[in-house]
């Protein structure tokens, strides 16, 4: 079932079509929002709001402009941005540490990633983890494709520098 068929099913309130969308994008959107918001609970809430809004008012997707997946991520990003605006300054969430088995190199990269600004973090996450293309990233973030490339480079460079700094400190100690 391609994007157009899936979307038509959702517009007809076909629960199976929407379930297919949720299964294909739900986990990815949650991971992206977790990076964007730095809070698992908030990410789940925003993801839930995003899907609920699409289910209740399925009228924003244009197949000519991009994929359904990028549309869902774009909708999630906008809701996450609204969530940030609603937060009071003192209620800023810190990124929760990711649990798991970590070698020294791997944990340093993870820690460096968490220190990136949220825009760079989410961009890198969408590209590296979700595998979004430049075109999809341009649609999700509403920026030109050329800007996507330059921002990805800036994010990687920043992450690499933080990582190197942490590694030098680690090796020095």
């Amino acid at each position: 079932m391609d994007d157009r068929q899936l979307w038509e099913g959702i517009r007809r309130k076909d629960a199976s079509a929407f379930d297919a969308l949720y299964r294909s994008c739900g986990a990815g959107l949650l991971g992206f929002l977790n990076q964007f918001l730095g809070n698992r609970q908030a990410a789940e809430d925003v993801a839930q709001e995003t899907f609920a809004a699409i289910w209740q008012h399925p009228n924003g997707f244009d197949p000519q402009r991009g994929t359904l997946r990028s549309y869902v991520f774009g909708a999630g990003r906008k809701r996450a941005a609204e969530w940030w605006r609603r937060q009071k300054p003192q209620s800023h969430f810190t990124t929760e540490p990711v649990e798991g088995c970590k070698s020294e190199t791997q944990s340093l990269i993870g820690n460096a990633f968490e220190k990136l600004p949220v825009e760079q973090r989410t961009l890198l996450w969408l590209r590296e983890v979700e595998g979004q293309s430049y075109a999809e990233l341009a649609e999700i973030l509403e920026i030109p494709e050329g800007t996507v490339r330059s921002r990805l480079f800036a994010a990687r460079k920043a992450l690499r520098q933080i990582w190197h700094t942490a590694r030098n400190i680690w090796e020095g100690s």
Binding site: A15, G26, L30, Q48, I109, L124, W125, E128, L159
Partner: peptide, 29 residues
Amino acid sequence: SEYATIGAELRRLASIDEGVPVAQVGWNK
């Protein structure tokens, strides 16, 4: 090589994160 390592590490971390189950939601009409 380091950029590739970064990408791989991020995907690994995401794989760990995906171990946390996503809430199942019913979308019945």
